[in-house]
Design a protein around this nucleic acid. Structure first.
Lengths: 260, 260
DNA sequence: GCCTAGGTCCCGTCA
DNA sequence: TGACGGGGCCTAGGC
């Protein structure tokens, strides 16, 4: 694959290469001194500094500082990138509609630009998601409660879709909410909402059970569960149950040629 | 500022330059053909493809494809980057503890590398946050209800902190939940949790009001509010109330030197 | 360190 | 298209 890279280009050179890169569908990285302004769902302004700007062919724009996983400013996919030279500065503007948002990056100097055709697989199979937990529960419903029988997943209620819905050993409805990680009060509120919604559907007086399936719960969540008469079932994360040593095996001790 | 850039470097050259960049505290962008493996809170594997790898001096690692604002794989700040040549491939590994996580990027070929000292302001003042909405409410409490008197913000309850707590014209407690954007059932659940918690604290029978302050609510959220006896007050987002045309004014019609 | 909730959350999925 | 909830969410603020 070929890369186009410019070292300390003039604004005109940068402009030209950005145009070419957009036309090719390349992904572009730009290092330089810039200010950033954003206006849309919120608004922000960022003073001068040396930063990394990444522009993707799908309309994504990312402004990164030297810290943090989250870009300091950005524009989501679907935006439109345009570049121009104004007032002696290179301006890269990315706009989108619905909601209407504008990102404005103004470079006083561009120190480096690289354009490259990024291709290949984009999605990863993530193991250990809530979907995996659901499969595990459906495979072994007794994990939820002895005699529990699942009847539906994503069952709709007035309060939203229930992860797993079924009946207990007595035939009473049970709402199951699944979480892949330790949960706090919000998850209890979610489960309580679903239970209330099902109770409203049922004939008066029918008891409706609620079970929160998660690796663990915070103290406050436990209190709220007790107050609401709901249950918690601890189920370890699936990824922990597998022999997760594959990555390690590739890393033999005694590395040569190692830095960092 | 100076940039070091390598065009189609050998693995040894890449290794050397990565070591130097890490030592200098530079931010690095690498374009090349790679596979990615991740193991930690979840696990994933990404087949061969041309991608962008960004390495920051704070330990952040980002693997980007040509689509999406979210990196296809990453490592959060605080991780440790190491590079090595193994089996004819350049391996960049980023690890962290608590939780224990490993990101493994293996390059069959590096097409471009650039290292640069990213510096300057990192944080932006975002206007239009929930904090701004709170200030607006405290400034003009009648927006919540005629005669509403705020008494505390972030008041603690058994169910978590209440955004704004006060009393209505009759002296009865009122719980206010603020949202900067249109809300769904989850926000209603949150408000209901807080109201229930305050009711538990109060002498039996004391009515406790609940008000959701948000630009708008979904139909389902409105139903749930009604069922819970809670109120909604529509307050437009603050950013919309300002003359949000600053960015536009800088963009005079009839751009010269515009591409894209 | 954990807990709690916000976020320009992003993102997929489904009605 | 909007709505709804998951996420390796990330991040800030308390305790």
């Amino acid at each position: 694959m070929s890369v186009v890279s410019l070292h300390e280009p003039s604004h005109r050179e940068t402009l030209w290469e950005l145009e070419a890169a957009f036309a090719r569908g390349d992904t572009v990285s730009v290092f330089g001194e810039c200010t950033v302004e954003y206006d849309g769902r919120a608004a922000s302004s960022l003073g001068p500094g040396a930063r990394l700007l990444v522009l993707k062919p799908d309309g994504t724009a990312l402004v990164h500082t030297d810290e943090g996983r989250t870009p300091v400013n950005w524009q989501p996919p679907g935006s439109e990138h345009r570049a121009a030279v104004r007032d002696g500065r290179l301006r890269v503007r990315s706009t989108r509609t619905n909601p209407s948002e504008t990102l404005n990056v103004r470079f006083s100097a561009v120190d480096h630009l690289a354009a490259y055709a990024v291709t290949g697989g984009r999605s990863v199979d993530v193991v250990g998601s809530e979907a995996d937990l659901k499969a595990r529960i459906l495979e072994e419903p007794s994990l939820v409660a002895d005699g529990f029988e699942p009847q539906a997943t994503e069952r709709e209620t007035d309060a939203g879709p229930v992860d797993v819905f079924g009946v207990d050993a007595d035939g009473h409805p049970v709402v199951v909410e699944l979480k892949r990680r330790r949960v706090g009060p919000d998850a209890v509120g979610q489960l309580a909402r679903y239970v209330s919604a099902v109770e409203r559907e049922e004939p008066d007086g029918t008891p409706v059970g609620g079970v929160l399936v998660a690796p663990s719960v915070t103290d406050r969540a436990a209190e709220l569960l007790a107050e609401e008469g709901l249950d918690h079932v601890a189920v370890d994360r699936l990824v922990a149950e597998t022999d997760g040593t594959e990555l390690e095996e590739t890393d033999v001790v005694g590395d040569d040629d190692t830095v960092g």
